[in-house]
Amino acid sequence: MEKLDALDLKLLRHVQQDASLSMARLAEEVGLSANACWKRVKQLENDGYIERRVALLNRRKLGLPVTVFVAVRTDQHEEKWLDRFAAAIRQIPEVVEFYRMSGDVDYMLKLICADIEDYDRIYKKIIRSITLRDVSAFFAMEQIKCTTEIPLDCRPD
């Protein structure tokens, strides 16, 4: 698929808002037959626009209400070190996002956990895994906005 058309974008909007929609309901929402809709969705999946469909869980009900952003600084900038660090972080399920950054912070982690004691357990796991220069934690006091939806109307042409 070379370029997304308006119908593709409409399908993507609906799918990312509710991936549990039946194909018949999705087709109705976008004004296509179920068969045509299925073909388009399959093409969007094959082309990698739809990576996967997931259920979003309620973290509070699951006892994981705390979000912690962890800024990591290191003096190590070799590829082998990064490979070891990334492998260690991938083994920590509470780390839900992991980024290599520009600027003063080398890496940023987003964790979800139960409380401060739980964060301390995770912190110790991180610092046992590899040598770091500095680790700073920032606890989110309130979640003001959180979405998994990609802003499709803001794409450059």
Rank of each mutant, 00 (worst) to 15 (best):
L56V: 14
A87W: 00
R52Y: 11
V68S: 07
V105C: 01
A86W: 04
E97H: 13
E78D: 13
G63S: 08
R90A: 04
L82Q: 07
V54S: 09
H77K: 04
T67S: 15
K61T: 12
R60K: 15
A86H: 01
A88W: 02
T67Y: 12
E51Q: 15
A55E: 15
H77R: 12
I50E: 03
K61H: 11
Q91I: 05
K80H: 08
Q91G: 13
V95G: 07
G63H: 00
A87V: 01
K61F: 09
E79Q: 15
G48D: 00
V95H: 00
V95A: 06
I50W: 03
P65F: 01
E79W: 12
L82N: 05
S102D: 12
L111A: 04
D104R: 15
L64E: 11
V105L: 05
R52I: 13
D47G: 05
E51Y: 12
Q91P: 10
F85I: 03
L64C: 08
P65R: 01
L111Q: 01
N58E: 09
L82D: 06
A88I: 00
V95W: 05
R73S: 12
V72I: 09
T67V: 15
K110H: 02
L111F: 00
H77M: 07
Q91N: 11
F85M: 01
L111D: 03
Q76S: 13
K80V: 12
R60D: 13
R84F: 01
K110T: 09
A87R: 04
L56I: 14
R59V: 15
L82G: 11
R90V: 00
L111T: 03
V68N: 06
L57Y: 10
E78A: 14
V96D: 01
L111G: 03
T74G: 06
Q91M: 12
R60I: 15
I89C: 02
M108V: 13
V72C: 05
L57R: 12
L109Q: 00
M108R: 08
Q91E: 12
R59C: 14
D106P: 10
G63V: 08
I92K: 04
E97T: 13
R59H: 14
L62V: 11
D83V: 14
R53M: 07
M101S: 07
Y99K: 10
L57I: 14
R90D: 05
R59D: 13
Q76I: 10
H77T: 11
V66K: 12
E94W: 01
Y99F: 09
L62R: 09
M108W: 06
D106E: 02
D106Y: 00
V72S: 01
D83S: 14
R90E: 02
Y99I: 07
V54R: 07
A55P: 09
A71H: 02
L57D: 11
D75C: 11
G103I: 01
T67R: 15
M108N: 04
V68F: 06
D83A: 15
E79M: 14
K61P: 11
R53S: 10
Y49N: 09
D75T: 12
A55F: 14
L64G: 09
K61Y: 09
F98T: 06
H77A: 07
R84N: 11
